[in-house]
Simulated scan of single mutants.
Amino acid sequence: MTSVTLSGACGNSPKNAFAEQVAIALVTADAEQLADWLIPDCVAIVSGDEEIHGREAALGALSDMLGRPDAVTIHHAITHGRTGAVNGTLTTGKTRIGFCFVLAFRTTKADSIAAFRLYRS
């Protein structure tokens, strides 16, 4: 099971809290939760500028790229309108990498994700 540390800064912003939960589900490849949040024909960019179309293909690419981290720490979750960003650190064994997801919400309600881009160090 992956240990999760939240930013602690999303108490007054449901959109920021949602973005934070989406990022956690993405890095842990929580397909069950993401089935509710990623639209079926979502677009993911996980390596360079290559677009991956479809929820299942996007989850497969993430899983291949990130594996199953031992720990996830969220540093910030920021949203505005139909866009959000979440950054943090993944730890697997003794290896730590930074990541950032830029999320495109389907609507300003921010209850589903139309596209996302992953940056990692």
Rank of each mutant, 00 (worst) to 15 (best):
A9W: 09
V46A: 06
A35F: 01
A85M: 09
V102A: 08
P40K: 01
Q33C: 04
A114C: 07
L34P: 00
H53A: 04
G48K: 07
A17I: 03
N12C: 12
L59P: 03
K94D: 13
L34Y: 00
S121R: 13
D30Q: 10
R68F: 12
T107P: 01
S3W: 12
T73I: 08
T89G: 10
S121T: 12
K109A: 15
L90I: 05
T95F: 09
G98I: 09
V72T: 11
M1P: 15
T89L: 13
I24P: 06
N87Y: 10
F18C: 06
I45A: 15
D36S: 10
E56Y: 00
F18S: 04
A19R: 04
A104Y: 10
L118C: 02
V27I: 10
V102C: 02
S47I: 09
S63T: 10
G81V: 02
I52Y: 02
Q33L: 09
G98D: 07
D111P: 03
I45N: 10
A85H: 03
C42Y: 00
I39T: 12
I52M: 05
Y119Q: 06
T2F: 12
N87H: 14
G54Q: 02
F105Y: 13
G60P: 00
L66Y: 06
K15A: 07
D64W: 01
T89M: 13
H80L: 14
F116P: 01
V43Y: 02
D41F: 01
A61W: 05
Y119R: 08
K15E: 08
T89Y: 08
G88V: 03
Y119A: 11
G54K: 00
H53N: 06
K109R: 13
S63Q: 13
G48C: 09
T91E: 12
T107S: 13
R117H: 14
R117K: 15
D64H: 04
R117S: 15
I74W: 05
A44D: 06
D36T: 03
M65K: 14
L103V: 04
P14D: 06
I113H: 08
G60E: 15
T108V: 12
G93I: 01
F116S: 05
D49W: 03
L66R: 05
T92Y: 04
Q21L: 12
T108R: 09
S47A: 15
F18G: 04
I45F: 06
V22M: 04
K109L: 14
A58S: 14
S121C: 12
R68Y: 11
G8T: 02
M1G: 15
V46F: 03
T79R: 11
D36H: 08
V86A: 08
S7D: 02
T95G: 05
D64M: 03
T2I: 11
A25V: 02
L34T: 02
L118Y: 04
A77V: 00
T79C: 11
T108W: 05
